[in-house]
Design a protein around this nucleic acid. Structure first.
Lengths: 120, 120
DNA sequence: CTGCGTTATGTTAATTTGTGAATAACGATA
DNA sequence: TATCGTTATTCACAAATTAACATAACGCAG
């Protein structure tokens, strides 16, 4: 491991983003995955949005978009009822979360490697 | 190579972007690299911007930003003179282009691989 | 049937971002 | 000195994205 091969003290570093597309339309990204995870944790779209400091409207649009792009819905939103309503995360969403997290893990490693070999 | 391992006919695919940062400030990305390459080809910032259908203002700002973030300027802009002015791409810029293109090549491969193993 | 908290949706305001026009500065050349 | 095409910079406007607010719809509980 020589200075010729690595570059950990450079002022430059590599960054990037990854996401999953469905027919040229953004399906998931970091934010949407986190949103679903929060919904699963809290059982409420409104509470999840609040905790992420995201507007309820935007959160709803994100979920709605994903539900429409996927054959099976990822989050089932029911209004009215016992506590005013409930948001249920489906098994399909779990699959998406697993797939995205695998991608994200591999990507983080990729970025780290590329940042180290960056020759600037 | 079975259907369990690959996923080339899925309606989903992986996409992403990478760039090089300098102290939390975007240094280069695809667009800026292309801009520098065009300048090198045409010897003119204005012509390069026009060819990329980018406003001259934006192009100038991009180059100016990169020049300031780098110790040595990437593009030297001289006004006046024989043909009204000239834009010179430095050796430093060549190094940046090489570094970025290496990164981009590796990233394209990464994305292709991840798209193939995507399990959705 | 009333109250409650959530989902659903529209409207408007605010902020950011990009565009285009206009013009000054510049320096070799003729 | 006048010309030329480029770089440099400002200003006003447009477009697009985002934020904020308001309010209707819903269905269970009491």
């Amino acid at each position: 491991m020589t200075d010729k091969e690595t570059n950990t003290n450079s002022k430059f570093n590599v960054e990037g983003r990854v996401w999953i597309n469905s027919e040229n339309c953004s399906f998931t990204g970091q934010g949407k995955i986190e949103l679903i995870e929060k919904i699963k944790e809290l059982g409420s779209l409104r509470k999840a949005a609040a905790e992420m400091k995201m507007s309820y409207r935007q959160a709803w649009q994100n979920i709605n978009k994903m539900n429409n792009l996927s054959e099976k819905p990822l989050v089932i939103l029911n209004r009215g009822g016992k506590n005013g309503g409930i948001a249920i995360v489906t098994e399909e969403a779990d699959n998406v979360i697993v797939a995205y997290n695998k991608l994200k893990t591999a990507f983080d490693i990729f970025i780290k490697q590329q940042s180290e070999i960056l020759n600037l």
